Amino acid sequence: MQVAFTQVAYISGFKLFVYEGARKGGMAPQEITLQVSNDNITFEDHESFTLQNVNQSVVTLDEPAFGRYVRLVVKSNYGHNAIVIGELEYYGKFVQGQIDLSEPTPLDPNAITCASIYAETPNASDGVYYLEPSSLHKGNGFNAYCDMTNLDGGWTLVANHKDAQDSLATKNFVEPTELGVLTDDKWQSVLTSMQIGIMTVDENNKVAFISKKKLQRSLCVKISDVASLSYPVVPYDTAYLWHDEVSGCSSTGLDYSYISLSTQYTSRADAYLTVGASLYQHATKFDIWPYINTRYSGAEQDQLRIYVK
């Protein structure tokens, strides 16, 4: 069963209805896979589900799906030769503006990044290295700290932030032992060379990771929207390095995800407090999430080192 939209859709879930006679006759879907495409030619499996033999199934996706074409592939039912679906509703909204649906571009062969250094020298150790993130910056390189240990190495440190700070101090060089963020020119230089995504490491050495694809497919604050780490985007009351949300961009309800770079405490009418360096995941999940609390990291950490690769 396939649906064609007039523009890219952000799908967060769906509801499937089966008539009682079909359900009793074993015709209700059991094993299904949601697939998405942007050209109606190449479809990718997004997520698979096992449905119960009931009249109505409401499914929330673990990760939102993006695409102009969406279809459900039914792989099995409850015993009948025929498969029957009475009604199908998708939940989500249309994406406004531009959204990056492309795969990562090839790394500039002339670039000198933490990732390229690690690729050439896999036994390289953590430390300071000279970088020229693209050929456009030839001769205008700078020193940066590289994490060559976590998640296959090759990560560039761009920010080291902690709760309840008055400001985000800009630095030509960010160290793991001192708070601060890269200057705007260096941040943009590292950002343009990003291939993989963002890794965070907290004061307890817990590592989280989110892919570039998710960082760019945000409906609120895409990573490319952030021109300055010292003045991040503040759509409501929290400064974000990245922010995704299904309904609006006010960080309300249970459908938002973010990387916070806030300073001091911020409050709003419902007395909710947001502070400092923290991660949140609802609709869009981090690819690696090390915290016991499955939604919010702030109860278990106060400081985050933020790396780009």
Rank of each mutant, 00 (worst) to 15 (best):
N55V: 03
Q56G: 08
Y78F: 15
D45V: 10
N55K: 13
I83Y: 02
G67C: 09
E44A: 12
Y78R: 01
G79A: 07
G79E: 08
S57A: 15
T42L: 13
H46M: 02
N53I: 01
S48V: 00
S37C: 09
F49Y: 14
V59M: 09
V70Q: 02
E47M: 03
A82W: 03
S57F: 05
Q52G: 15
I83S: 14
E47L: 03
K75V: 00
A65F: 11
L34C: 15
S48H: 11
N53H: 03
D62N: 15
H46G: 02
N53V: 03
V58T: 11
Y69E: 01
S57E: 15
K75M: 05
V36H: 13
A65W: 12
V54I: 10
T60I: 12
D39M: 05
E44I: 09
H80W: 04
V58F: 06
K75F: 01
F49A: 12
L72V: 11
L61A: 00
N53R: 02
G67N: 10
E63Q: 15
E63W: 15
E47N: 07
V74K: 04
F43D: 03
T42M: 06
E47A: 13
N53G: 06
L34G: 14
V73P: 00
T50S: 12
V36F: 09
H80I: 01
E44T: 10
V70D: 02
T33Y: 00
V74G: 04
G67L: 14
V54L: 09
G67S: 09
D39T: 10
N77A: 08
D39A: 11
V73Y: 07
D39Q: 07
G79D: 00
Q56S: 14
Y78H: 05
A65H: 09
D45C: 07
D39G: 05
P64I: 01
I41S: 11
E47D: 07
N77L: 03
I41T: 13
A65P: 08
V74P: 00
D62K: 13
R71H: 08
V73G: 06
L34H: 14
R71F: 11
